[in-house]
Design a binder for these strands. Structure first.
Lengths: 206, 206
DNA sequence: TGTACATCAGTGAACGCGCGTTCACTGATGTAC
DNA sequence: TGTACATCAGTGAACGCGCGTTCACTGATGTAC
């Protein structure tokens, strides 16, 4: 059964899309090739017509998930004023919805540790997506020199990813809610603090 | 070969100790029972004289590793003034040494995500250790109401764990160093900020 | 336009392999007499 | 103190199982004439 020109690409994308959800839910090693193919409505034998190896799919699925996160952030911040964007992302990130739906959430708390242990080639691909994400968050910190914006973006991302990790370890308990709240407030305070510090510095220079 | 009374406990502890290192290095599913026993100088057959299942060892090894982290923190903060303790822990945590030696470092960035996906029973054991760690860090935030101290402790732990996660994804690159620095400064600023805010609040009330 | 052939995405059986777990056995040492 | 027996931590072969990967095959559709 030979298919039309776009068919293979569509199938390929569907596998990546479904895999990116299940991998975030179950971990980078928590689900097998056969089950991933079943998710896409296929049998396991066809897998290698689309990917060189299981790891190649994991890399692609991770990249896809990171792209979806960034797209989501762009979408929710699209129509708000620049100085409110970072706070809005932090609010959305540190929600119970995100905690309880890792399959559709950020890959960093879900897959970061396993990813850091993959092959150097794979890890570099991951690091590239991380860099993109930092740059995007830095764009949400206006009126600050780029280097300081990057620094604040990194700190915010670290606080968000770390809080989500802790919240998921805590389950859906009182502690978990406490963690989300603490992380949110910390990220928001950090976001507020940086511009002020820069402004103070500027005032001093003039 | 029957052994003396303490021998079994010693062997048990040695397995846990060695496993806690290798599991942090390779991930909760990254090394098998046979290899873990070999680390302890034994063959795999004897494993079930010590543990009900592989998962039981993972739980014990995680708890052991968390205890070692806390012991380490107590040790390095033992002789410094209370208000410097949190900063000292953050400095040690966000070092390149810690980044490059996950086997002897904090379990949260190394195993947190996999742990959050284990059985509810196991996850609760992990959450208990997390709670202990938060309490310990809160002890390092003096002159602040307990609730605020806990909040700051959680935020600091989240920033530390998140930064370590990002730094390891980034490998040992320029980005990785930038992440460690940003995380360190953010954790230290957070530690400084909270007492001031509390002081301002107090002043207002009086 | 109609026909013969080539293509290749997808199927499902099979592969070797490593895993967690079980089990019959060993033999040094503790215990009972 | 010496002897016979019981214990049980540790051994290593074996178990069933699921994994990633390979492969011969299928058959609908694109392409060449």
């Amino acid at each position: 059964m030979r298919y039309s020109r776009e068919h293979k690409q569509e199938t390929h994308d569907r596998i990546v899309r479904k895999a990116s959800v299940r991998l975030r839910e179950k971990g980078a090693h928590g689900i097998g090739v056969a089950d991933l193919m079943k998710e896409a409505g296929l049998t396991h034998g066809g897998f290698y017509a689309h990917f060189d190896s299981r790891e190649a799919l994991v890399v692609e699925a991770f990249g896809y998930a990171m792209d979806r996160s960034m797209e989501h952030w762009r979408k929710i911040t699209d129509e708000v004023s620049p100085e409110k964007r970072l706070a809005l992302v932090a609010e959305a990130y540190l929600s119970t919805f995100h905690r309880d739906n890792p399959g559709h959430g950020c890959s960093i708390p879900a897959l970061g540790a396993e990813i850091a242990r993959e092959s150097p080639k794979a890890r570099k691909a991951f690091a590239g997506k991380l860099e993109e994400m930092i740059e995007l968050l830095a764009d949400y910190i206006p009126d600050v020199p780029r280097k300081a914006a990057r620094k604040q973006a990194i700190a915010t991302l670290a606080t968000m990813a770390g809080s989500m990790l802790l919240a998921r370890i805590a389950g859906s308990s009182e502690l978990s809610d406490e963690v989300l709240k603490a992380g949110k407030d910390s990220a928001l305070e950090g976001a507020k603090r940086e511009p002020k510090a820069a402004a103070a510095k500027k005032a001093k220079q003039n």
